Amino acid sequence: MRATSTFTVSDFTPTESPSTIGDQPMIITAASSGLSYMTKTFTGQLSGSSVTWFLGALNQQTGAGSYAALEAIEAELAGRAGTFNVVHAASTSGQDRFDEHFAIVPGSGTGELAGISGSGELRIDPDGTHHFDLEYAFED
């Protein structure tokens, strides 16, 4: 089955990076890295909200970078309500998107969404509209 939705980000909160981890000083590269938390609202065939842990590295001069995210979603999908996780990641050289990964975390579904599995993609239109597309199935 396939579900398409759009989403908006209602909060994006960067965390402060530590200067050390244990006795090890942070390693500085050309791509600044950091962890942020964000909340999203979904409308469409998937409707609900999510909280996302977003880890990224971005070269501010070139726009090149990568991110990885773990998202906890509470939503209604195909008339079923519950929660599940997705993990997604991608890279950019500044003008593109590549090495994309997007999967529903196995065994993460609850409520009527228990047993959900699948994959998906994030798309951004030229006007800035963000899409969240799922290919999913339920265990019988």
Score class of each variant (00 low, 15 high):
residue 133 D to E: 11
residue 125 D to P: 09
residue 51 V to C: 07
residue 107 G to P: 01
residue 134 L to C: 06
residue 129 T to D: 10
residue 99 D to M: 08
residue 61 Q to M: 12
residue 64 A to S: 15
residue 59 N to R: 03
residue 119 S to N: 02
residue 101 H to T: 12
residue 101 H to C: 13
residue 133 D to V: 02
residue 137 A to V: 02
residue 127 D to G: 03
residue 108 S to Y: 04
residue 117 S to E: 00
residue 69 A to V: 03
residue 82 G to I: 02
residue 139 E to W: 01
residue 133 D to I: 08
residue 91 S to W: 05
residue 137 A to I: 00
residue 81 A to K: 14
residue 125 D to L: 11
residue 123 R to K: 15
residue 102 F to H: 09
residue 130 H to K: 08
residue 57 A to S: 07
residue 133 D to N: 07
residue 127 D to I: 00
residue 55 L to M: 15
residue 65 G to D: 02
residue 131 H to P: 02
residue 65 G to V: 03
residue 116 I to E: 01
residue 58 L to D: 02
residue 51 V to P: 06
residue 129 T to H: 04
residue 76 E to K: 01
residue 81 A to D: 01
residue 114 A to E: 12
residue 61 Q to E: 14
residue 133 D to F: 05
residue 87 V to S: 08
residue 86 V to M: 13
residue 56 G to M: 09
residue 121 E to T: 10
residue 98 F to G: 00
residue 113 L to M: 15
residue 67 Y to S: 03
residue 97 R to H: 11
residue 106 P to A: 15
residue 121 E to K: 05
residue 88 H to F: 08
residue 116 I to R: 08
residue 94 G to D: 08
residue 83 T to C: 10
residue 126 P to C: 15
residue 47 S to F: 01
residue 97 R to M: 14
residue 55 L to C: 06
residue 122 L to M: 04
residue 140 D to I: 00
residue 124 I to G: 05
residue 120 G to V: 07
residue 93 S to C: 11
residue 51 V to Y: 01
residue 86 V to N: 06
residue 70 L to W: 05
residue 80 R to V: 06
residue 92 T to Y: 14
residue 75 A to P: 10
residue 82 G to N: 07
residue 86 V to C: 13
residue 81 A to F: 01
residue 125 D to Q: 10
residue 116 I to A: 08
residue 70 L to N: 14
residue 92 T to K: 08
residue 107 G to M: 07
residue 96 D to N: 08
residue 139 E to I: 03
residue 85 N to P: 08
residue 51 V to G: 06
residue 134 L to D: 00
residue 76 E to G: 10
residue 88 H to W: 08
residue 111 G to P: 11
residue 67 Y to D: 14
residue 124 I to H: 06
residue 93 S to D: 11
residue 109 G to Q: 11
residue 102 F to W: 01
residue 52 T to S: 10
residue 112 E to I: 07
residue 55 L to E: 11
residue 93 S to I: 12
residue 52 T to Y: 11
residue 50 S to K: 11
residue 63 G to C: 12
residue 105 V to T: 06
